[in-house]
């Protein structure tokens, strides 16, 4: 699947993950610090991901 990342904007391709939690854990991203979005809709931690999905992992922490 195509995964869009922010800060900075970039794309990576990842295979073999089936849920949001697996995806974040695999990228060593704390679930408290990110949201996962598919087609403009949030997907919860146990939400299933498909290999054809394009998703965004959005950081939620700001330093201001």
């Amino acid at each position: 699947m195509i995964v869009r990342l922010r800060q900075p904007k970039r794309e990576i391709e990842i295979d073999g993950v089936h849920t949001v939690n697996q995806l974040l854990d695999g990228l060593d991203m704390n679930r408290e610090s990110f949201l996962v979005i598919r087609n403009g809709t949030l997907v919860p931690g146990d939400g299933r991901l498909d290999e054809h999905d394009t998703i965004e992992i959005r950081p939620v922490v700001s330093g201001g």
Binding site: R6, L35, G40, P59, V60, S62
Partner: peptide, 24 residues
């Protein structure tokens, strides 16, 4: 929390500055 606030914006369709302030 800020995760809840980001979720609020996404659900409400609010476009916001996602990138971090470079000075921070």
């Amino acid at each position: 929390t800020e995760r809840e606030m980001a979720a609020w914006c996404i659900v409400r369709g609010i476009d916001y500055q996602v990138e971090e302030c470079p000075m921070a």
